[in-house]
Simulated assay, not measured.
Amino acid sequence: MVVSAKRATAPKRVALYLRVSTTEQTTDNQRRELEAVAERAGWEVVAVFTDEGLSGAKGRDMRPGLDALMKAVTRREVDMVAAWSVDRLGRSLTDLLDLLQEMRSKNVDLFLHQQGLDTSTPSGRAMYQMLGVFAEFERAMIRERVMAGLARAKAQGTKLGRKRIEDTDAKKVDAIRALRAEGKGIRAIAGKLGVGVGTVMRVLGEPNAVA
């Protein structure tokens, strides 16, 4: 007699992300609730990343916990990221889209406790599908503002020109490429290094990129 055995499915590897804005606050409640959810769902919490006393308005480069989390996502060390609420991840739409799109590109799901969002479910996956729509809207708005600004400058007699890549400081060129390799967005790189977005895109050879 042949006995068939059902192969056990490995539990979902989950990373918790916890953040509070002030040092007077604690992440204990967030962790307790998320660990309880994971236990009920049969998920395995493999890592906990924390940023304490840091505003959600700060970018990834200013939040070591978030940066470490996204590096774990890039290395495919987790299957899902769980956070207490969407505002724990960030408060800028652009930054949120960058994070969520990066997770999606690595097939990493997202669970948000307060919003009841779980992208591993059919209804939750629909949210990921909308990311492309919002990202394209953001790009279109940026292009529109840039074109309007150029037209206004031209009408005012301002001479328009492009700074050549070779005129950019060599160290900044290396820094731009290194930050992009770490997964930083175009605007984040430009802000960090004090250069124009166009300069960053030309150095990277990504003329149509805005993320």
Score class of each variant (00 low, 15 high):
R164D: 15
Q114C: 04
A41K: 10
A68L: 05
F137K: 07
V14S: 14
M70D: 00
G194R: 10
D95C: 04
G59T: 13
L110C: 06
A175N: 11
A47Q: 13
M130W: 14
R145P: 15
A5R: 09
Q114F: 11
A72P: 06
G161N: 04
S123E: 03
G59H: 01
A178D: 14
A41S: 04
L34R: 00
E102W: 05
M130V: 07
E182G: 09
G194Q: 11
R31A: 08
G53P: 08
T121E: 12
E206V: 13
V173E: 11
M62G: 09
T168G: 08
E206M: 14
R63V: 11
I142Q: 04
G194D: 07
L66A: 12
L131V: 10
S92I: 12
H113S: 04
K12G: 10
L96H: 04
R88I: 07
G124K: 05
D169P: 04
D109Q: 14
A170F: 06
L34I: 07
T158C: 14
T121P: 15
A148L: 12
V197H: 04
I142E: 00
K184G: 06
G116F: 11
A170R: 15
I186A: 05
G196P: 01
R19S: 01
R125C: 07
K163W: 03
M127N: 07
E77R: 06
F49Y: 12
F111I: 02
V20F: 06
T119R: 02
D167L: 02
H113Q: 09
A170V: 10
R164W: 01
L18H: 09
A209P: 00
V14M: 10
R63T: 06
A126L: 13
G183P: 01
P64C: 05
D167Q: 13
V210N: 07
L131R: 07
L97V: 15
V37G: 13
E102Q: 14
G183Y: 00
A211D: 13
T168S: 04
R180Y: 15
A181K: 10
K58D: 11
G65T: 02
L112V: 08
D51C: 02
K159M: 13
E166A: 13
D67H: 09
E35A: 11
R152A: 11
R91I: 10
T158Y: 15
G116K: 15
A188Y: 01
Q156L: 10
V73E: 00
L54H: 09
T199C: 11
A190D: 00
E206W: 14
A8Y: 05
R32Q: 07
T168K: 07
E39A: 15
R177W: 09
E52Q: 14
L117G: 02
L69E: 01
A36D: 02
A8F: 10
M1C: 10
I142M: 11
K106F: 13
E77N: 03
M80S: 12
K58I: 00
R143Y: 14
M103R: 02
F134A: 13
D174C: 03
